[in-house]
Amino acid sequence: MSPWHFFAEHRNEILAATFDHLTLVLIAMSIAIAIAVPLGMFIVQRRTLSSIALGITSVFQTIPSLALFGFLIPIPFIGGIGRRTAIVALVLYALLPILRNTYVGLTGVDRSILEAAEAMGMTNAQILLRVRFPLALSVILAGIRTATVITIGVATIAAAIGAGGLGTFIFRGVAMVNDAVILAGAIPAALLAIAADILLGQIERRLKVL
């Protein structure tokens, strides 16, 4: 069976899996952003804490993704089989790029600007929210973009622990030694990644202040 034939016959199934995949990624990314961006803002002026936070998130990133899914299964509350475990793993993966870029963006603001802000009598909170954050926004978004593209890819592996999504086709195809089935998962996943990259890249450019 040619891939096109398979696609045509299973388009509803593929569409549903794509939608599942997308929601999995969106939920994981929302949680990761909600954790990493405020955390980055919190650690920006705390040197020890920042190396600890960046260190821990880097460790998550070094764990092979399949192993991370496996590790999470026996853990109570967050573990088990299914979407919830997958989301936890995806969040852990997405943290580092967002946190690192938030930190780098916030600390990379020009010294003379920060000095002026301080000298004008802005409080630390005002400097953070009104100066550092807006100037770091495009760098933070670049981190979100990287994390999104990674998450779309890693989310295919989530099918291994029963989370659904496009990985379902890939695992099935591998088991059946059927390229058409693998491609039914791989092509939409790649297209999602490319689309996310382009879209977020455009927003990022719009936010750039130079």
Binding site: A119, G121, L210
Partner: peptide, 18 residues
Amino acid sequence: IRLRRGIGYVIQEAGLFP
């Protein structure tokens, strides 16, 4: 903070907010 708001400050390269 109060002290600084009552004292003007100008630096090289101006340090304007971009």
